[in-house]
Write a protein that binds this DNA or RNA. Structure first.
Lengths: 111, 111
DNA sequence: AGAGTATAGGTAGACATGCGAGGTATATTA
DNA sequence: TAATATACCTCGCATGTCTACCTATACTCT
């Protein structure tokens, strides 16, 4: 049994997904794989987190979806970043950086 | 209207509170002030977040509470870190660092 | 032919947590 | 005496992730 649990911080998933789609249209399953690979298996994105998140991002107009055939010959829903999705991503990254900076200030206080 | 919103990431509040209590016993209201000061006003901790979190941390045995009189002459509930609270804090900090590291890997991917 | 695995999509319900809005009370200051 | 800061609290909501479950297709192995 793995004693490691890779729960992600609530609020970061959208940013990660949007960031992955910057690289070009990609289907949901592929997004999960990419996130896992790039994070060196730290994040193991569950499908119950992934798909609701994708629908949420699509509803908000940050991603648009299109059915295509994958390299493996199956149907896949390919997501690509919209213009406002790109702005949203930039905004989320800025917020993330300010936020981790503020957390760092607190964690750096000497004992 | 302020366009700045200082919502914190869900999951970080416990860590921040525990970290503040490392410096010595402190009451809830003071914790909120410290967090705000140290983060240079970035975090403005709401009381509806603060007090439930303190009760949660006490229930889990990470903090213990004691009523005392504050410097201003009022009754205050002073929280101090327990032994397992200190271990919990270390564990949360490690997790935070691994997590932000993994996020950084994804954000660093070139466009 | 059949079983198992990887790929690809999805939903429903539980759960945790932070927030907004409201409340109480005391001490200090104007 | 009114306002403000200090100090505590609770309730209900919104959000978001997870677990568990479901469907279907393509490929590989037996």
């Amino acid at each position: 049994m793995g004693e490691e649990r890779a729960e992600l911080l609530k609020g970061t998933l959208d940013m990660l997904i949007l960031k992955i789609t910057v690289l070009g249209p990609i289907h949901g399953y592929g997004i999960a794989q990419r996130i896992q690979q790039i994070s060196r298996d730290f994040f193991q994105l569950q499908q119950g987190s992934l798909y609701p998140a994708l629908h949420r991002l699509e509803d908000r107009g940050w991603l648009k979806a299109e059915w295509k055939v994958t390299e493996t010959g199956r149907e896949g829903k390919f997501y690509s970043l919209t213009r406002i999705g790109r702005k949203q991503l930039q905004s989320e990254i800025e917020n993330w950086e300010r936020l981790t900076g503020a957390v760092a200030l607190i964690l750096q206080t000497a004992e």
